[in-house]
Design a protein around this nucleic acid. Structure first.
Length: 274
DNA sequence: TTAAATTCCTGTAAGC
DNA sequence: TGCTTACAGGAATTTA
């Protein structure tokens, strides 16, 4: 599923192709994939606009338009944001098509429809509660262990729950939350306020490392994730705990434990993670 | 304010 | 073989 590394890969791949392009149209096949504003206003607000730049914030792909608004794409679980020559054979579950001025088109495809399309200014989308007030970027140098500690030590929820909370830290999902906890040797079910400054320091480094390596490997294709060209990533082959419940821990050899936290499957090593 | 539970969605795989 | 059921999970929403 698309988390920070997967969204970063798509954004970076598309940027050189999309900056400067004009969105010539907007064909909504499944209008309710648009969550703000109305589908009609969305289509009208996008048509004829030029993409001036692209960026990523958490798991959101941001297209900065010449109108001053953002075209925002969130891939949810199974969303795909692809750039293909116009007229390419259409896949199933295609929900929106945006013809461009270069003979190509942008396509939003999403089997489970957990993803969403948004249009508006950053402040408008936050005020309308269409986007959360995102926490810091975990791979940004300005995100320090001290900052992380201040956010965690005032909360009693399990660590894993807070790693998944986009307002605590942006872009982390189930895969990299488990990977980072393992790398930092911290149990994901520890109440967050019981972590020492030292443990939070390790966790900050583990998150940074896990996410950067995953970006270098173009993300994890566990099930449906594909990049802007329809290709799978490679990181799924490098995962240390995610999807390996019952298999031996790479560090101590004991079987990895499986529990449910925050409604999510959570894999960790009872011996190596305290 | 916080935390936990529920809901949305469909393809896949396990079980009978 | 064919049907039913459980499971996967990001995040908004609801409940406590």
């Amino acid at each position: 599923m698309p988390e920070l590394p997967e969204v970063e890969t798509v954004t970076a791949d598309l940027r050189p192709h999309l900056v400067g392009r004009v969105l010539a149209g907007c064909d909504l096949r499944f209008p309710s994939i648009v969550r703000h504003p109305s589908p009609e206003a969305f289509a009208a607000g996008v048509r004829g606009r030029r993409i001036e730049s692209m960026s990523r914030r958490g798991k959101y792909i941001l297209h900065h338009l010449d109108s001053g608004e953002l075209l925002v794409v969130h891939l949810g679980m199974t969303g795909q944001w692809r750039y293909v020559p116009a007229g390419t054979e259409e896949p199933t579950h295609l929900h929106a098509v945006f013809p461009l001025d270069d003979g190509f088109e942008l396509r939003y495809r999403d089997v489970r429809r957990f993803g969403r399309l948004l249009l508006g200014t950053d402040s408008e989308l936050v005020a309308e509660r269409k986007m959360p007030r995102l926490g810091p970027e975990p791979i940004d140098s300005t995100f320090t262990a001290g900052d992380f500690y201040r956010r965690l030590h005032v909360r009693r929820a399990p660590l894993k729950t807070l790693l998944l909370d986009q307002m605590v830290v942006a872009g982390v999902g189930n895969i990299y939350a488990d990977e980072a906890c393992f790398r930092a040797r911290v149990r994901p079910d520890r109440p967050a306020n019981t972590l020492s400054r030292q443990a939070v320091g390790r966790l900050r480094e583990a998150l940074d490392h896990s996410l950067r390596v995953a970006i270098a490997n173009r993300g994890s294709s566990v099930a449906d994730y594909r990049d802007a060209w329809g290709e799978a990533g490679r990181q799924q082959e490098e995962l240390l705990v995610y999807g390996r419940a019952g298999q031996p821990c790479v560090r101590c050899g004991r079987p990895l434990a499986l529990v449910r936290l925050a409604g999510r499957s959570t894999v960790f090593c009872r011996r190596c993670q305290r």
